[in-house]
Design a protein around this nucleic acid. Structure first.
Length: 514
RNA sequence: GCUCCCGUAGCUCAAUGGACAGAGCGUGUCUUUGCGGAAGACAAAAUAUAGGUUCGAUUCCUAUCGGGAGCACCA
């Protein structure tokens, strides 16, 4: 006889319809009633399982669960905006999804280290330095740098020498040329100030920001080791590393002697392994870099930079597309100004009657974050302002609203000990909540395993819907009986806690009033 | 040309082998706004096409059509 369902070792499916029970599985299996299970029933090859009222009620006080540290370490690389370029919506995805994964893993007991791998090195600086010097400008504001970048690409179409000059400037930067270093330093400072404003608005704090330039010295070691181990090969004047299963090798050193971002990512991987010895490293980076990470992971394995047990993951998030279904192209200067979007969202929230600036910010930013997170990570998203800033329906504000409702009800009662008899007869709306809320923990686990915050969004939205349906149909404070009142308050409290915790994991604030 | 990802209601998205494919927006009708109507109820509406594997396929395999991304010296 089984003590619990999990000991049976079968994968349990959740029935699509309420009358099919709480769980079901297809095939043979003998499940005995116990503390958790009321009864089972076989229907057409499926075994349906009903849970005990007592157990369902007990879950209301258990979720969300306090977890112990699990002794595992996770490193996550996210956000990673490029210096001298505006913080675009592409990096918005990385920042928001990355932060959600960070929170989820931490919740599950991992030691989590976030690293903002700033794009502060590379040939792009050669382009900028060239433009700054050739136009003799003093204006190093991010707007102007962006203009110079766009201008560079316009002119480079006709003038082949431009690319060459840019490469030379990057080469000078890498060799430590004084003028190049000075300009580079100024550009970095400008950009970081801008990024900090965005992070402040988003309410995101990332543990570390080593950035690509940090690996300047470490790259030398990597290149030496690759040569010594005879893993690096000469090819058309460059130094490359072949990766099993890939036609294109990793570009370790360019034919002009300069490094590439692949060199930096290899050094980064080596550093992370040595520094933290993580069980898992997540790269929250767009899908357009899929091949790059296959190269880096493959080369790192060949070089012995990652231990066997270390899992390397590239989440490959989809792109934001414009309403024509096309990619936003920063090179053409067609990018959306993220800061404007964020401010606009806050403004809209305010217009809807948020009590103060603080809640308007929580609601506005919450809407944007939820819009992003509620999509499957890997699918492309059409960036439609009206949808992004949705304040009703399946949206962040809907969840926040539901939470505020629960808090508003709870504020009207004294005490917080609600007793419910196991013999209580639930109405369908109460039951719908009980049969859903206890799954919170496993949903969080699945979201982590699959790197899919949208699963958590789905769960929370469904919970909020069930609660609102219940709320609309039944009175809580003026319930028909004391036992109903107690149960409904207990449900309200539990739904509130789960919404607050769940939104917190998504990086979305949940104010008590809005 | 090669590689990878994706085609689900009018639109935007869910559902990683299970029972009758779920939502939101939009549309139509409705709910004494008395615990917060940023809410709730009802209705119409979808798996690109053709095969295959399976007791069972939106899901796995093959082909076709359509969209996106990438294909060493940008990141």
């Amino acid at each position: 006889m089984q003590k619990s369902i999990k000991e049976l070792g079968v994968k349990l499916e959740h029935p699509a319809r309420e009358e099919w029970g709480d769980w079901a599985f297809y095939g043979e299996g003998n499940i005995q009633p116990d503390d958790m299970i009321e009864r089972t029933e076989k229907v057409g090859g499926f075994t349906n399982i009903w849970l005990k009222n007592e157990w369902l009620i007990s879950q209301l006080s258990i979720v969300p669960k306090k977890r112990e540290k699990n002794g595992k370490t996770m490193v996550i690389d996210y956000s990673a905006p490029n210096i001298a370029k505006p913080f675009g919506i592409g990096h918005l995805r990385s920042t928001i999804i990355g932060q959600a994964l960070y929170n989820v893993y931490k919740y599950l007991g991992y030691e989590v280290i976030g690293d903002n791998h700033l794009g502060d090195w590379g040939t792009q600086f050669g382009k900028l330095l060239y433009m700054i010097e050739s136009t003799k400008t003093d204006d190093l504001s991010i707007e102007h740098l962006e203009k110079l970048y766009v201008e560079f690409h316009k002119r480079a179409e006709d003038d082949k020498n431009m690319e060459k000059a840019a490469r030379e400037w990057f080469w000078r930067l890498e060799k430590g040329d004084g003028r190049a270093r000075e300009l580079w330093q100024k550009c970095v400072e400008q950009s970081i100030a801008e990024f900090d404003r965005i992070y402040e608005l988003l309410g995101v704090k990332i543990d570390n920001a080593y950035g690509e330039s940090f690996y300047e010295v470490r790259m030398v070691v990597v290149i030496e080791e690759a040569k010594k181990k005879q893993i690096a090969k000469k090819s058309l004047g460059a130094l490359v590393i072949e990766v099993p299963g890939l036609k294109t090798p990793l570009m370790l050193v360019k034919s002009d002697g300069a490094t590439t971002y692949a060199t930096r990512d290899l050094a980064t991987l080596k550093f992370r392994q040595e520094m933290w010895n993580p069980d898992i490293i997540i790269y929250e980076v767009g899908t357009e870099q899929a091949m790059h990470f296959e190269q880096v992971f493959g080369a790192a394995r060949r070089l012995g930079y990652v231990s066997e047990h270390t899992k390397l993951v590239h989440t490959k998030h989809g792109l934001y597309l414009d309403t024509d279904g096309k990619k936003f192209a920063t090179r053409e200067g067609k990018s959306i100004k993220l800061e404007e979007v964020l401010q606009e969202a806050i403004k809209r929230a305010k217009k809807l009657g948020c009590e103060d600036d603080e809640t308007a910010k929580a609601v506005g930013i919450g809407a944007i974050k939820y819009f992003d997170l509620s999509h499957n990570v890997q699918s492309d998203i059409v960036f439609d302002w009206e949808k992004v800033m949705a304040l009703e329906g399946n949206s962040g504000p809907y969840l926040q609203y539901t939470f505020a409702r629960t808090q508003s009800v709870l504020a009207k009662v004294q005490g917080s000990m609600f007793n419910v008899q196991s013999t209580y007869k639930f109405n369908p709306e109460e039951m719908a909540i009980l049969r859903w809320i206890y799954r919170f923990e496993e949903v969080v686990e699945e979201a982590a395993e699959r790197f899919a915050p949208n699963l958590l969004c789905n769960f929370l939205f469904e919970l909020a819907q069930r609660y609102n349906t219940f709320y609309n149909k039944h009175s809580i404070l003026q319930a028909e009986s004391t036992s109903s009142r107690e149960l409904r308050l207990l449900i309200t409290e539990a739904v509130g806690k789960v919404l607050k915790t769940g939104l917190g994991l998504l990086g979305i604030e949940a104010p008590d009033r809005m």
